[in-house]
Computed example of a mutant assay.
Amino acid sequence: MDFITQNLPQTLMVIGIVALIIEVAVLGLSTFILLFFGLSLFLTGLLMSFGILPDSLTTALWSNTVVTAGLAVALWKPLKQMQNRVDKKQVNSDFAELTFVLTSDVTEQGLTTHQYSGISWKLKSEQPIIAGTEVLVTKKEVGVMWVTPKS
């Protein structure tokens, strides 16, 4: 315990960096609590190292309480917006060049199914396609393949 109290600023900065590494590397910024706490510990240790804050456990406790709360209030909304940002870009996958011949008619209603990779996919098309036509998968959704006639 003496080692920690004698080197309190460095200890706080190391614990803060460890908390930040856990938040970013392990949790992937899914919870912001360790982010705020890690930044608070690091800032408090830094301020103690420069002599701006006194080097005591009581100061460390109160400073971390205030700085963590301040960071949470200041950064919560921007970080939440960043986390909720969704990329609408279509991703090419192993469906990109999938073609097959229809066994029954396909419409926009999705009443026809097709077995692929052990899953029964609903088939939809913006225009009606008759059975026996070779089709190309153009878009994928959860459980749905959108197809067009192959040209």
Rank of each mutant, 00 (worst) to 15 (best):
L43E: 00
V137Y: 09
F37H: 03
W146T: 14
L79S: 06
S125P: 04
F50D: 03
S56Q: 06
T5A: 03
T99G: 03
G132Y: 08
L47Q: 02
L34T: 03
S151R: 10
L75Y: 07
G132Q: 09
L46N: 05
T58Q: 15
Q83T: 01
L12F: 09
E97M: 06
G51I: 03
G118C: 10
G38K: 04
D55P: 00
S104D: 15
T65Q: 05
M1Y: 01
K122A: 10
H114S: 02
S93W: 01
N92R: 01
Q6K: 07
L136A: 11
V66I: 15
L98M: 08
L102K: 05
L34K: 02
L27A: 08
V137D: 09
F36Q: 00
V26W: 10
I52R: 00
L136H: 15
V73D: 06
F32N: 03
T68G: 08
L27W: 05
N64T: 09
S93E: 08
V24D: 07
Q81S: 06
P128M: 04
E108Y: 10
V137M: 09
M48N: 01
Q109K: 15
E141K: 11
K140C: 15
E97F: 05
L61V: 14
K122Q: 12
T68Y: 06
N92S: 02
F100R: 13
F36M: 06
Q115K: 14
G16P: 09
Y116I: 02
L20T: 07
L34C: 03
T148V: 15
A19P: 05
L34Y: 03
V137H: 07
T99L: 03
V24E: 06
M145Q: 08
A19H: 09
S104N: 12
K124V: 11
K89W: 00
K140Y: 05
I21V: 15
I22S: 06
V142W: 04
K122G: 00
G38H: 05
K89E: 04
T107L: 14
E126G: 13
T107W: 11
V67N: 08
L123A: 05
G132N: 09
V137P: 10
D55Q: 08
Q83I: 00
T68F: 09
Q127S: 12
Q81G: 00
V142Y: 11
F36R: 01
